[in-house]
Every structure is written in C-alpha cells, then in structure tokens.
Amino acid sequence: MIYDEPRYMPGGDRYMLIEFGNEMNLELNFMAQGLASAIVANKIKGVVETAPCFASMLIHYEPEDISYDDLKQEMARLIANLGPSDNIELPSRLFYFPTAYLDPWTKAAIDDYTAKINPEKEYDAAFVARLNGLSGPEQLVRVHSGTEYWVASLGFWPGLPFMMALDPRCVITAPKYNPPRTWTPQGTVGMGGASTAIYPVATPGGYQIFARIPIPIWDPKRRFAAFEDSICLFRPGDRVKFVPVSVAEFEDVERRVADGSYEYNVVGYQKFSVSQYKSWVAGLDRTKRF
C-alpha cells in the first residue's frame, strides 16, 4: 500500500529514511525520485546527498546545518508540494543495449553452479518462464525484451542498477538463488523479485540469469564519453531497452568495445512524465503477453 503520510525514521546522527509505502510499485519510486529532484531544485540546506530506492528514500544530512526535526518539516513541505505523483516529471535518459539472450556465458555459470552447489537447479530461463506461466525460454525473451526498464535504484555493487519493467504486460517475478552463486559473468542480465539487474563486473549473485550485454556499465578507466561524470553509467531515473542480438553480433560489439570504437546508443535527457505514462498504462490490456 501507499501510506497516506510518509514515514520518517532516523538512522544515527546523519541519516533519515523516508518510506512512502510498503510494496514494490513504480509509483512509490517516482515519488522518491520526485523528492530527490525537489531537494536539488529547492537547494535544501544541510542535505548532503539522497539515495532513492523502490519505496523509500535515504537522506544523508549535515546536522550542523539542519536539525532532524527541521529536515522532517522541510521534507513534508516538499512532499506536499509534489502533489499527486501524476504531476511529477523526472529527467531520464534511454539506453539501448544489444543483448544476447539464452547466451553461452550465463549458461556456463549456471552449469558450474549445478555441478558444484545445487544439482537440482533448473535452468534459470526455463524456471522463470514456468513460474510466470510463459510457454518457455523463447517467450521469456520476448516478454523480457518487450519493455523499457526504469532504473529505480543503484547499489549492492557500485553502478549496479535495480530496474523495473515499465510495461505492465512484461512484469515477471522470480525468486533468488538459495544458496547464491559464487560467480556471475560481467554484463549478465538477471532477475530477482520483480526487478531486473545488470552485473557491472563479475561478482557472486543471487538473481536468475538468462542474458548478457557486451557493453560496460562500469569503466574505472573512463575510456568512453558516457563515463564523463562518473565511473558508473546509470543514474536513478534512467531507462534501459534490451535489444535481442545473436552471439555473433554480441561478439562484434565486444570487439568494438575492446578497441574503443563502440558508440553508446543513448537518447539524452528528456522529461519522463508520470501522468502521460499512467494514461498509456491505463489503456493497455494487462492480460496480454508478447
């Protein structure tokens, strides 16, 4: 549910957590990101930084510049001014990623897991398809690649995006691995709960995995212009579109990434209008899958 009034909670001497509700719901994330934008626009004194998450937002503040109670009052005022989430417009970029679904690299990671950790583990794509009532891995690919994804939050590892499907016809869910995998290839695309993530580097992981992108979303050497402002690609509020490609095309892009000639395919900052999004969603037949 969405709370009538947001809940404010302290985290030690320098943090405040604001909860907007207690469910996974894009609207709650729009509110969190709307508040983050409003804090910047209103230059609220004493706010060091913000970190929106699915249904909440963490604020890091400087108590010498603003007290906890004053911060709470300021936040309540900004949230009231945000009005209903329909009024929110968020700066958003759109990234297109060539994506090898049902690829050999994530398969190798799953095979290694079944050989060493859990022989019972069903292949992730078949498992996720079955749990979501899809006909099989091929339909999972159509459904998963049929939508833009919304970067709701970043974390777990620097630059790792937690994304939610914007098209409700493409919402699928998946439980996490138990126990987790000890390794996941860099660029792997996976799902846990209702969120999709991309692994910036090879790390352990718990998401169901069934695709891989050849493009860095983390670049400490900043070889590409997309990393001008940071060494990770995404900001909250960005969007991602996975474009299915063959393994041969994946490897071609990988070569261009290696020699530095790859051009990121990105639509620059535009306004994402929550009201226009909601009116589009309202006209969809949610029972239809791709």
Partner: peptide
Amino acid sequence: IIDHGYPLGA
C-alpha cells in the same frame, strides 16, 4: 524488507 537505502553505521 523491500530493498531500501542503508545508513552508514546501520
């Protein structure tokens, strides 16, 4: 809990 931000020192 639904993934949320962690304060340093939590």
